[in-house]
Each structure stands twice: as C-alpha cells, then as structure tokens.
Amino acid sequence: MLRISHLSKSFGSNQVIKDLSIDIRQGDVTVLLGPSGCGKTTLLRCIDFLERAESGTLSFADGGAVEFATAAKKEIARCRRRFGFVFQNHNLFSNKTALENVTEGLIVARRIPKPEAVAIGREALARVGLANREDYYPNQLSGGQQQRVGIARAIAAKPDVILLDEPTSALDPELTGEVLDVMKALAEDGVTMLAVTHEMTFAQDVAKRIVFMDGGVIIEDSTPRAFFAKPREERARQFLKRLLPNYGEYTI
C-alpha cells in the first residue's frame, strides 16, 4: 500500500539513513529494531516529513508519488493525511482536553463539522479505553493515559498507517502495559502500524514483521519467529543478546 524507495538523510556530515527502501503492506504490524542511533526514529520522521530527507520517493499503491526532497506544502499535507504519528513523549496540546486533543486536527485541519468530529473523537478515546476521561487536561492524566490519548489522536482520522516512535520508552515500566495493550488491540483490528519499540514481547507476540536496522540500512527483514529464533546477521544476534539476557542460552 506504501513504498519508500531510496531514502537518504544526513545531519551535517553524518549520514543517518542510506538509500533505504521498504514496502509497507496493508494490515502489517512492522516493528523496527536496531541499536540506538541506527536511524529508526529518523526514518519514521522522514516518512511523515518531520525531517526533510535529501532523496527518496514515497509512493502509494492507489497511485501518486512524491519526492521527499522536493515535496511542496500541499503534497506534504496530502501525504500526512495518510499517516498518524505517535510520539515518544506524546506531545499532547497542554491547553486542550483529551477530547479536544483528538478533535483539534479534525476540526481545524480537515474541516470536519464539530459534532461529527466530537463523535469521532469519542469513538477514538473509547478505543484506547479513555471514554471516561474526555474532559481531562493532559496534566490530569497519567503518563500511560497521556500516551493513549496520543494514540487516539493518531488513529482518529483513520489514516492508512500509524507511525509509532518508541511509544512506551518515556513511561514508567508499570505503565507500558496499558499502552502496549492498546497497540495490540489495534493490531488485532487490522490497523497498519510501523513502530519503533524496544518492547521485545510486543515485537515477538504482536508484530507480523521485524525490520532490523543498523547504520542507516535495513539488515534483516523477516518474521518475528524467524528473527528471534535465529537472526541471519551477526549484528542482529549481538543486539538480541544485549536486550534479552537469556537469549541464546536455550538454543543448541
């Protein structure tokens, strides 16, 4: 449904993403793994034009393609409609309630009439289990609830793909569960997701596909089963060894 081809991005002289290409299929739950600094987050941000890539093309299965480097404002706006973005530290609008956080973009950017937007917003909040928190401001919510509002905001407009940038990394360990549960429920509903996460359990149990990156390129692209059982690449093995203390102990 979506193809990114030959994407490159540098910060100064540091090339973070090198000629990377990836296809996202409808209903895929793809988890991006890799050591820190490997370009996972930058990749997500480039896809949603939060960073300007130097080269590369974004093309959609239903026609239409844009160049990352030269896309005009209108094209960027059109592309962004296809994505929802969940930030590591949620970035909720602190002067808006939970419901307003979800409806703001619908009303202001998409010009959906307010009653309709409110209905959509309530439905999105219900999906993340926060139907009873709609008029709470972000500072009245726990970290996990804030991030769930962030997810509700991202899914409200029913985008093609949800991009999640380490959605649980900034949370206390006991709060990650509720966010992961929401992500799992979305995955079961067939929502297409591209997620950067260090939650290995989520990667193992929920992901349909694991993409392992290092040094700005994709090194392995396989199923969780294959990846966690026996990664082909040494770098991936090293990575798993660091993250999963028991990794390798039970294999012969």
Binding site: N91, K96, A109, G150
Partner: peptide, 19 residues
C-alpha cells in the same frame, strides 16, 4: 506540540493561533 500539530494536518499559523 508544533510537530504534533503538523502531523494532524494543522498549518503553522493555525498551530500558533490555537495551540
């Protein structure tokens, strides 16, 4: 919050005024 507003399609001016 600027970035979040951009991802939901708001223009910089809308973000400035409303957020």
């Amino acid at each position: 919050q600027f970035e979040a507003a951009a991802t939901v399609g708001m223009t910089p001016f809308q973000t400035l005024r409303r957020i």
